[in-house]
Design a binder for these strands. Sequence first.
DNA 1: CGGAATCCTTCACGATACTG
DNA 2: CAGTATCGTGAAGGATTCCG
Lengths: 141, 141
Amino acid sequence: METDVTQTSQQQRPKNFIECRRVAVPVIEVLSRIGSKWTVYVIMALVTGPMRFSELKRHIEGISQKMLTATLRDLEEDGFITRKVTPTIPPRVDYELTEMGQELKGPLASIGEWAARNSGRVAEARERYATAEAERRAQAW
Amino acid sequence: METDVTQTSQQQRPKNFIECRRVAVPVIEVLSRIGSKWTVYVIMALVTGPMRFSELKRHIEGISQKMLTATLRDLEEDGFITRKVTPTIPPRVDYELTEMGQELKGPLASIGEWAARNSGRVAEARERYATAEAERRAQAW
DNA sequence: CGGAATCCTTCACGATACTG
DNA sequence: CAGTATCGTGAAGGATTCCG
Protein backbone atom coordinates (compact mmCIF):
# COMPACT_ATOMS: atom_id res chain seq x y z
CA MET A 1 0.00 0.00 0.00
CA GLU A 2 2.93 2.34 -0.47
CA THR A 3 1.52 3.94 -3.59
CA ASP A 4 -2.13 4.60 -2.96
CA VAL A 5 -3.45 6.26 -6.07
CA THR A 6 -6.87 6.69 -4.61
CA GLN A 7 -6.91 9.06 -1.68
CA THR A 8 -10.34 10.10 -0.57
CA SER A 9 -9.69 12.34 2.41
CA GLN A 10 -10.84 15.89 1.86
CA GLN A 11 -8.19 18.08 3.43
CA GLN A 12 -5.40 16.89 1.20
CA ARG A 13 -7.22 17.65 -1.99
CA PRO A 14 -5.05 20.68 -2.78
CA LYS A 15 -2.02 18.46 -2.44
CA ASN A 16 -3.60 16.00 -4.82
CA PHE A 17 -3.87 18.68 -7.47
CA ILE A 18 -0.11 18.40 -7.75
CA GLU A 19 0.41 14.84 -6.59
CA CYS A 20 -2.20 13.31 -8.87
CA ARG A 21 -0.34 14.29 -11.98
CA ARG A 22 2.94 12.82 -10.77
CA VAL A 23 1.18 9.60 -9.83
CA ALA A 24 -0.97 9.54 -12.93
CA VAL A 25 1.81 9.82 -15.50
CA PRO A 26 3.30 6.33 -15.05
CA VAL A 27 -0.18 4.84 -14.82
CA ILE A 28 -1.12 6.48 -18.08
CA GLU A 29 2.08 5.37 -19.75
CA VAL A 30 1.44 1.78 -18.77
CA LEU A 31 -2.19 1.98 -19.76
CA SER A 32 -1.48 3.54 -23.12
CA ARG A 33 0.84 0.65 -23.81
CA ILE A 34 -1.13 -2.30 -22.51
CA GLY A 35 -4.41 -0.52 -23.17
CA SER A 36 -4.12 -1.09 -26.88
CA LYS A 37 -6.40 -3.82 -28.12
CA TRP A 38 -3.78 -6.06 -29.67
CA THR A 39 -1.31 -5.78 -26.82
CA VAL A 40 -3.73 -7.49 -24.47
CA TYR A 41 -4.31 -10.31 -26.93
CA VAL A 42 -0.58 -10.84 -27.42
CA ILE A 43 0.15 -10.88 -23.71
CA MET A 44 -2.73 -13.22 -22.99
CA ALA A 45 -1.56 -15.52 -25.76
CA LEU A 46 1.99 -15.63 -24.45
CA VAL A 47 0.91 -16.25 -20.87
CA THR A 48 0.53 -19.92 -21.76
CA GLY A 49 4.09 -20.10 -23.05
CA PRO A 50 6.37 -19.00 -25.93
CA MET A 51 4.90 -18.76 -29.40
CA ARG A 52 6.10 -18.22 -32.94
CA PHE A 53 5.11 -15.30 -35.12
CA SER A 54 2.81 -17.31 -37.33
CA GLU A 55 1.27 -19.04 -34.32
CA LEU A 56 0.44 -15.69 -32.81
CA LYS A 57 -0.99 -14.48 -36.08
CA ARG A 58 -3.20 -17.52 -36.36
CA HIS A 59 -4.19 -17.37 -32.72
CA ILE A 60 -5.09 -13.70 -32.65
CA GLU A 61 -7.79 -13.75 -35.25
CA GLY A 62 -8.22 -10.50 -37.10
CA ILE A 63 -4.83 -8.96 -36.48
CA SER A 64 -2.90 -7.76 -39.49
CA GLN A 65 0.71 -8.76 -39.89
CA LYS A 66 1.65 -5.12 -39.64
CA MET A 67 -0.03 -4.61 -36.29
CA LEU A 68 1.32 -7.86 -34.91
CA THR A 69 4.83 -6.82 -35.86
CA ALA A 70 4.38 -3.35 -34.39
CA THR A 71 2.84 -4.69 -31.19
CA LEU A 72 5.62 -7.20 -30.71
CA ARG A 73 8.25 -4.52 -31.35
CA ASP A 74 6.72 -2.24 -28.75
CA LEU A 75 6.43 -4.99 -26.19
CA GLU A 76 10.02 -6.01 -26.83
CA GLU A 77 11.23 -2.43 -26.59
CA ASP A 78 9.63 -2.03 -23.19
CA GLY A 79 10.98 -5.34 -21.96
CA PHE A 80 7.71 -7.25 -21.72
CA ILE A 81 8.74 -9.95 -24.16
CA THR A 82 11.90 -11.40 -25.66
CA ARG A 83 12.52 -12.18 -29.33
CA LYS A 84 14.60 -15.23 -30.16
CA VAL A 85 15.64 -15.78 -33.77
CA THR A 86 16.66 -19.20 -35.03
CA PRO A 87 18.37 -18.57 -38.38
CA THR A 88 17.22 -21.71 -40.14
CA ILE A 89 15.59 -21.81 -43.53
CA PRO A 90 12.85 -20.88 -43.30
CA PRO A 91 13.64 -18.71 -40.28
CA ARG A 92 11.98 -19.24 -36.93
CA VAL A 93 11.24 -16.50 -34.40
CA ASP A 94 9.91 -17.23 -30.93
CA TYR A 95 8.39 -14.69 -28.60
CA GLU A 96 8.22 -15.16 -24.86
CA LEU A 97 7.08 -13.13 -21.88
CA THR A 98 9.84 -11.82 -19.65
CA GLU A 99 9.43 -12.03 -15.89
CA MET A 100 8.25 -8.43 -15.95
CA GLY A 101 5.74 -9.39 -18.60
CA GLN A 102 4.49 -12.22 -16.43
CA GLU A 103 3.98 -9.78 -13.59
CA LEU A 104 1.43 -7.94 -15.68
CA LYS A 105 -0.89 -10.85 -15.04
CA GLY A 106 -1.81 -9.37 -11.68
CA PRO A 107 -3.07 -5.99 -12.90
CA LEU A 108 -4.68 -7.58 -15.94
CA ALA A 109 -6.51 -10.08 -13.78
CA SER A 110 -7.62 -7.24 -11.54
CA ILE A 111 -9.16 -5.48 -14.50
CA GLY A 112 -10.57 -8.74 -15.79
CA GLU A 113 -12.38 -9.38 -12.55
CA TRP A 114 -13.76 -5.88 -12.51
CA ALA A 115 -14.90 -6.27 -16.11
CA ALA A 116 -16.52 -9.62 -15.40
CA ARG A 117 -18.44 -8.19 -12.47
CA ASN A 118 -19.46 -4.94 -14.12
CA SER A 119 -19.92 -5.53 -17.84
CA GLY A 120 -23.64 -6.00 -17.27
CA ARG A 121 -23.90 -2.75 -15.37
CA VAL A 122 -22.11 -0.93 -18.14
CA ALA A 123 -24.51 -2.35 -20.70
CA GLU A 124 -27.47 -1.22 -18.59
CA ALA A 125 -26.00 2.24 -18.20
CA ARG A 126 -25.59 2.53 -21.95
CA GLU A 127 -29.20 1.56 -22.54
CA ARG A 128 -30.42 4.06 -19.99
CA TYR A 129 -28.27 6.72 -21.60
CA ALA A 130 -29.57 5.91 -25.06
CA THR A 131 -33.16 6.04 -23.86
CA ALA A 132 -32.68 9.35 -22.06
CA GLU A 133 -30.95 10.69 -25.14
CA ALA A 134 -33.83 9.64 -27.38
CA GLU A 135 -36.35 11.30 -25.07
CA ARG A 136 -34.31 14.46 -24.96
CA ARG A 137 -34.25 14.47 -28.73
CA ALA A 138 -38.01 13.94 -28.95
CA GLN A 139 -38.52 16.82 -26.53
CA ALA A 140 -36.79 19.17 -28.93
CA TRP A 141 -39.67 18.86 -31.40
CA MET B 1 -10.53 -15.81 -7.82
CA GLU B 2 -13.47 -16.96 -9.84
CA THR B 3 -12.24 -15.45 -13.08
CA ASP B 4 -8.56 -16.23 -13.42
CA VAL B 5 -7.44 -14.68 -16.67
CA THR B 6 -3.94 -15.94 -16.33
CA GLN B 7 -3.74 -19.69 -16.49
CA THR B 8 -0.25 -21.06 -16.86
CA SER B 9 -0.77 -24.77 -16.91
CA GLN B 10 0.26 -26.38 -20.16
CA GLN B 11 -2.36 -28.96 -20.92
CA GLN B 12 -5.23 -26.54 -21.13
CA ARG B 13 -3.61 -24.40 -23.76
CA PRO B 14 -5.92 -25.59 -26.56
CA LYS B 15 -8.87 -24.62 -24.42
CA ASN B 16 -7.34 -21.21 -23.92
CA PHE B 17 -7.22 -20.61 -27.65
CA ILE B 18 -10.97 -20.33 -27.46
CA GLU B 19 -11.39 -19.17 -23.89
CA CYS B 20 -8.88 -16.37 -24.10
CA ARG B 21 -10.89 -14.45 -26.61
CA ARG B 22 -14.07 -14.67 -24.59
CA VAL B 23 -12.23 -13.51 -21.51
CA ALA B 24 -10.21 -10.90 -23.35
CA VAL B 25 -13.08 -9.03 -24.95
CA PRO B 26 -14.49 -7.43 -21.78
CA VAL B 27 -10.99 -6.68 -20.56
CA ILE B 28 -10.21 -4.91 -23.80
CA GLU B 29 -13.46 -2.99 -23.72
CA VAL B 30 -12.72 -1.73 -20.26
CA LEU B 31 -9.13 -0.94 -21.12
CA SER B 32 -10.02 0.90 -24.28
CA ARG B 33 -12.29 3.10 -22.22
CA ILE B 34 -10.19 3.74 -19.13
CA GLY B 35 -6.99 3.33 -21.11
CA SER B 36 -7.41 6.70 -22.73
CA LYS B 37 -5.14 9.32 -21.27
CA TRP B 38 -7.79 11.83 -20.25
CA THR B 39 -10.13 9.27 -18.76
CA VAL B 40 -7.59 8.38 -16.11
CA TYR B 41 -7.07 12.03 -15.23
CA VAL B 42 -10.81 12.64 -14.93
CA ILE B 43 -11.40 9.60 -12.76
CA MET B 44 -8.46 10.41 -10.54
CA ALA B 45 -9.69 13.96 -10.18
CA LEU B 46 -13.18 12.87 -9.21
CA VAL B 47 -11.95 10.31 -6.70
CA THR B 48 -11.53 13.14 -4.21
CA GLY B 49 -15.14 14.21 -4.67
CA PRO B 50 -17.55 15.89 -7.11
CA MET B 51 -16.21 18.62 -9.33
CA ARG B 52 -17.55 21.23 -11.71
CA PHE B 53 -16.70 21.38 -15.40
CA SER B 54 -14.44 24.38 -15.05
CA GLU B 55 -12.75 22.90 -12.01
CA LEU B 56 -11.94 19.78 -13.95
CA LYS B 57 -10.65 21.83 -16.85
CA ARG B 58 -8.40 23.83 -14.58
CA HIS B 59 -7.28 20.77 -12.67
CA ILE B 60 -6.44 18.65 -15.70
CA GLU B 61 -3.85 20.89 -17.24
CA GLY B 62 -3.53 20.57 -20.98
CA ILE B 63 -6.93 19.10 -21.76
CA SER B 64 -8.97 20.86 -24.38
CA GLN B 65 -12.57 21.70 -23.63
CA LYS B 66 -13.61 19.43 -26.46
CA MET B 67 -11.82 16.39 -25.07
CA LEU B 68 -13.05 17.07 -21.57
CA THR B 69 -16.62 17.19 -22.82
CA ALA B 70 -16.18 14.04 -24.86
CA THR B 71 -14.48 12.18 -22.01
CA LEU B 72 -17.20 13.16 -19.57
CA ARG B 73 -19.89 12.09 -22.03
CA ASP B 74 -18.30 8.70 -22.50
CA LEU B 75 -17.86 8.15 -18.79
CA GLU B 76 -21.45 9.18 -18.19
CA GLU B 77 -22.71 6.92 -20.94
CA ASP B 78 -20.99 3.93 -19.39
CA GLY B 79 -22.23 4.77 -15.92
CA PHE B 80 -18.93 5.73 -14.34
CA ILE B 81 -20.01 9.26 -13.48
CA THR B 82 -23.21 11.25 -13.02
CA ARG B 83 -23.94 14.68 -14.43
CA LYS B 84 -26.00 17.05 -12.31
CA VAL B 85 -27.16 20.30 -13.88
CA THR B 86 -28.19 23.26 -11.73
CA PRO B 87 -30.02 25.64 -14.08
CA THR B 88 -28.88 28.89 -12.52
CA ILE B 89 -27.36 31.77 -14.40
CA PRO B 90 -24.61 31.10 -15.11
CA PRO B 91 -25.33 27.38 -15.18
CA ARG B 92 -23.57 24.95 -12.91
CA VAL B 93 -22.77 21.33 -13.75
CA ASP B 94 -21.30 18.91 -11.26
CA TYR B 95 -19.74 15.59 -12.11
CA GLU B 96 -19.42 12.80 -9.60
CA LEU B 97 -18.20 9.22 -9.62
CA THR B 98 -20.89 6.58 -9.31
CA GLU B 99 -20.33 3.62 -7.05
CA MET B 100 -19.23 1.64 -10.07
CA GLY B 101 -16.80 4.41 -10.88
CA GLN B 102 -15.42 4.29 -7.36
CA GLU B 103 -14.85 0.57 -7.76
CA LEU B 104 -12.41 1.29 -10.55
CA LYS B 105 -10.02 2.48 -7.88
CA GLY B 106 -8.99 -1.09 -7.21
CA PRO B 107 -7.85 -2.01 -10.72
CA LEU B 108 -6.33 1.43 -11.22
CA ALA B 109 -4.38 1.13 -7.99
CA SER B 110 -3.23 -2.30 -9.08
CA ILE B 111 -1.84 -0.85 -12.27
CA GLY B 112 -0.43 2.11 -10.40
CA GLU B 113 1.51 -0.15 -8.07
CA TRP B 114 2.83 -2.17 -10.96
CA ALA B 115 3.85 1.01 -12.76
CA ALA B 116 5.56 2.40 -9.68
CA ARG B 117 7.55 -0.78 -9.23
CA ASN B 118 8.45 -1.29 -12.87
CA SER B 119 8.79 2.09 -14.54
CA GLY B 120 12.53 1.96 -13.94
CA ARG B 121 12.78 -1.47 -15.53
CA VAL B 122 10.86 -0.26 -18.55
CA ALA B 123 13.23 2.70 -18.93
CA GLU B 124 16.22 0.36 -18.75
CA ALA B 125 14.70 -1.96 -21.31
CA ARG B 126 14.14 0.95 -23.67
CA GLU B 127 17.75 2.05 -23.35
CA ARG B 128 19.01 -1.44 -23.99
CA TYR B 129 16.75 -1.69 -27.00
CA ALA B 130 17.93 1.66 -28.35
CA THR B 131 21.56 0.65 -27.92
CA ALA B 132 21.09 -2.70 -29.58
CA GLU B 133 19.20 -0.98 -32.37
CA ALA B 134 22.02 1.52 -32.90
CA GLU B 135 24.60 -1.25 -33.04
CA ARG B 136 22.51 -3.20 -35.48
CA ARG B 137 22.29 -0.11 -37.63
CA ALA B 138 26.05 0.46 -37.50
CA GLN B 139 26.61 -3.17 -38.49
CA ALA B 140 24.74 -2.59 -41.71
CA TRP B 141 27.57 -0.35 -42.98
C1' DC C 1 8.63 -17.85 -42.50
C1' DG C 2 8.92 -13.42 -40.77
C1' DG C 3 9.02 -9.56 -41.76
C1' DA C 4 9.73 -4.31 -44.32
C1' DA C 5 7.86 -0.74 -47.43
C1' DT C 6 4.22 1.68 -49.47
C1' DC C 7 -0.35 3.49 -50.09
C1' DC C 8 -4.61 4.89 -48.42
C1' DT C 9 -8.52 5.69 -45.32
C1' DT C 10 -10.31 6.76 -40.99
C1' DC C 11 -10.45 9.23 -36.94
C1' DA C 12 -8.67 11.13 -32.62
C1' DC C 13 -7.50 15.42 -31.21
C1' DG C 14 -6.40 20.43 -30.95
C1' DA C 15 -7.55 25.22 -32.22
C1' DT C 16 -10.93 28.41 -33.01
C1' DA C 17 -15.31 30.59 -33.04
C1' DC C 18 -20.01 30.86 -31.62
C1' DT C 19 -24.29 30.11 -28.12
C1' DG C 20 -27.96 29.56 -24.25
C1' DC D 1 -20.26 28.86 -17.18
C1' DA D 2 -20.69 25.01 -19.90
C1' DG D 3 -20.98 23.71 -23.61
C1' DT D 4 -21.75 22.94 -29.47
C1' DA D 5 -20.03 23.37 -34.32
C1' DT D 6 -16.54 23.44 -37.76
C1' DC D 7 -12.15 22.86 -39.72
C1' DG D 8 -7.52 21.09 -40.20
C1' DT D 9 -3.73 17.95 -39.09
C1' DG D 10 -1.24 13.90 -37.60
C1' DA D 11 -1.28 9.38 -36.20
C1' DA D 12 -3.42 4.64 -36.19
C1' DG D 13 -4.40 0.97 -38.66
C1' DG D 14 -5.77 -2.14 -42.85
C1' DA D 15 -4.56 -3.96 -47.54
C1' DT D 16 -1.16 -5.01 -50.63
C1' DT D 17 3.33 -5.93 -52.50
C1' DC D 18 8.11 -7.14 -52.15
C1' DC D 19 12.41 -9.29 -49.77
C1' DG D 20 16.18 -12.35 -47.30
